[in-house]
């Protein structure tokens, strides 16, 4: 019997992300860039991207920062779709809350992407604590796969029930 609760996928045209970063970066000022990434990145992801962006006196996104941002965006979009497979629409927190506060992505040393659940989400977002306790906290684990081909990046995720393991 399957323990898969939800699946989600997302495809990104990477030049769109490059354009978004380019338009958001001003010489020596990360304010607008931070406003943009606040919408879909959690704190560890923001820190990583800002390190990648590096020299703010040269406000042009490098390929690494662009690919990273595309990966995070696609991951979050696919996760939201996967949530929609087993959580009633009215119970899912707003997209930006899911993207920036519930999940975050890291990579292992070999590059395998991993999705982490912010285990303080319920106490940090009391309005959505019921959602978190009922559907997420200690109840699910997530598998994620990301693939690139030139201008495109695709993410695919599974949300699985821990109870069925």
């Amino acid at each position: 019997m399957s323990n898969v609760l939800g699946i989600g996928t997302d495809i990104v045209y990477i030049p769109r992300i490059a354009g978004l970063l380019q338009r958001s970066m001003t010489k020596g000022d990360t304010r607008k860039l931070q406003m943009v990434i606040n919408k879909f990145m959690a704190a560890p992801e923001k820190q990583k991207l800002l390190k990648m962006v590096g020299d703010l006196n040269d406000p042009s996104p490098n390929n690494k920062a662009t690919a990273y941002t595309a990966g995070v965006w696609a991951t979050k979009e696919s996760l939201l779709k996967a949530l929609g497979c087993f959580v009633p629409a009215g119970s899912i927190p707003p997209a930006q809350t899911v993207y920036s506060k519930l999940f975050y992505k890291t990579n292992t040393e070999t590059g395998r992407p991993i999705v982490h659940i912010n285990n303080k989400f319920g106490q940090e977002n009391l309005l959505y604590n019921d959602f978190f306790e009922k559907y997420i906290n200690n109840k699910v684990s997530i598998d994620l796969s990301i693939s690139h081909d030139k201008d495109y990046l695709i993410s695919y995720c599974l949300i699985k029930s821990n109870a069925m393991k």
Binding site: V12, S24, K39, F40, W73, A95
Partner: peptide, 14 residues
């Protein structure tokens, strides 16, 4: 789409 909306919302916030 959702990516455009992120940028539009930030532009409106600004």
């Amino acid at each position: 789409d959702s990516l455009d909306t992120v940028e539009l919302l930030v532009a409106i916030e600004e």
